[in-house]
């Protein structure tokens, strides 16, 4: 019933296929997700610690002894935990949402960037790279 709605008056599938939802609907549902997250896992929705753990996992391949003694990786151990799976889930969930609406496409440069800075992929990626470095350094300083 969820996948075919012939003759149905209200079709939930049409809603799932829409490219963009009202920000108030999406926002309210996200707030509700946080209730269930707190109830079922005792956890609040977070992301950045996962990138710390992942960077620790990668470093561990090259220098396991060193990672084992670094204070920050003792505090945030390089393991797969609840939040790591949540971040993986975000990627999968966004993929499903984009596929359903036909919004999924391999894009190399965002449209707004293209209009302002041109077609060079290298330029966008190098700027995104440094943006990512700065953003994460700041996020970790603020412990968020």
């Amino acid at each position: 019933m969820l996948f075919t709605c012939e003759g149905e008056e209200v079709c939930p599938m049409d809603f799932l296929k829409k490219t963009q939802w009202s920000p108030y609907v999406a926002g309210a549902l996200m707030g509700m997700v946080s209730w269930f997250s707190v109830l079922t896992a005792g956890k609040y929705l977070g992301v950045s610690t996962t990138f710390v753990r992942t960077s620790g996992m990668i470093e561990k391949i090259f220098a396991p002894e060193r990672v084992a003694t670094m204070p920050y990786f003792i505090k945030e151990r390089p393991i797969i935990d609840w939040q790591w799976m949540e971040v993986l889930g975000i990627l999968i969930g966004a993929f499903i949402a984009a596929k359903l609406s036909g919004d999924f496409k391999r894009s190399f440069i965002p449209p707004m960037w293209k209009g302002r800075f041109g077609l060079s992929r290298f330029k966008r990626w190098i700027v995104a790279f440094f943006g990512g470095v700065i953003l994460m350094f700041g996020a970790r300083m603020a412990d968020g």
Binding site: Q20, V33, A41, E86, V87, L88, G89, I90, A94, D103
Partner: peptide, 11 residues
């Protein structure tokens, strides 16, 4: 939880 959250972020 992540799949639902990611779905909503994209929508």
């Amino acid at each position: 939880i992540g799949i639902i959250f990611g779905f909503l972020l994209q929508k």
